[in-house]
């Protein structure tokens, strides 16, 4: 779990209390200010989780089951998403909905949705997803050329309109 995701709201509260306290209890206020500052610094920058959705199309058709990985340009967790039958996705980061703001390079692969696990594969966990219909062009951080910029006001990303050839 990204601590930064959680302390975003706390920070505003903390600053509010800090200002009130310094007027009433000068000593306690300054001590608490130091403690709170250390607390905030320890948690790194405050990135708010932004709820972002989008869609992927390949050759003009929705990419059912396409998997997206959003790699942050700096340090940070990788956000992921999987497209539904309409090619739409919602971003997820470390098991929680949303994505921290920042700039990302986007890796996309589209495992052949017609390849489904058999009952025996389901049980043994030996199912490998179908071949990438994008031929691996965008599958990894190194190969992809796709970018995305997430700001606090981003709600929907532009369509990733890809070609299979």
């Amino acid at each position: 779990m990204n601590p930064a995701c959680h302390f975003a709201n706390d920070r505003i509260l903390v600053l509010f209390f800090k200002n009130k306290m310094t007027t009433q209890f000068q000593n306690f206020g300054s001590i608490s200010a130091v403690v709170f500052c250390a607390f905030i610094a320890g948690c790194g920058g405050s990135n708010k989780m932004v709820q972002v959705s989008g869609s992927v199309a390949v050759d003009g058709k929705p990419a059912d089951g396409a998997a997206l990985l959003f790699f942050p340009s700096g340090d940070g967790p990788v956000a992921t998403a999987t497209c539904n039958a309409e090619g739409k996705y919602k971003l997820v980061c470390e098991g929680e909905p949303g994505i921290p703001k920042g700039s990302y390079s986007v890796a996309i692969r589209w495992p052949d949705p017609s390849v489904k696990p058999t009952a025996a594969q389901k049980m043994t966990g030996l199912f490998n997803e179908g071949p990438d219909l994008l031929k691996g062009k965008y599958e990894s951080k190194q190969k992809t050329t796709l970018k995305a910029e997430i700001t606090a006001s981003t709600t929907e990303l532009v369509l990733f309109d890809l070609k299979s050839n």
Binding site: A67, T80, T82, V92, E94, E96, G125
Partner: peptide, 22 residues
């Protein structure tokens, strides 16, 4: 059957827990 390959999951989608993620 018991020696498993570790994979990444989205962890957010209760409707499809096996959805890929990290």
């Amino acid at each position: 059957n018991i020696a498993r390959q570790i994979r990444g999951l989205s962890g957010a989608n209760i409707a499809d827990p096996t959805q890929q993620g990290c």
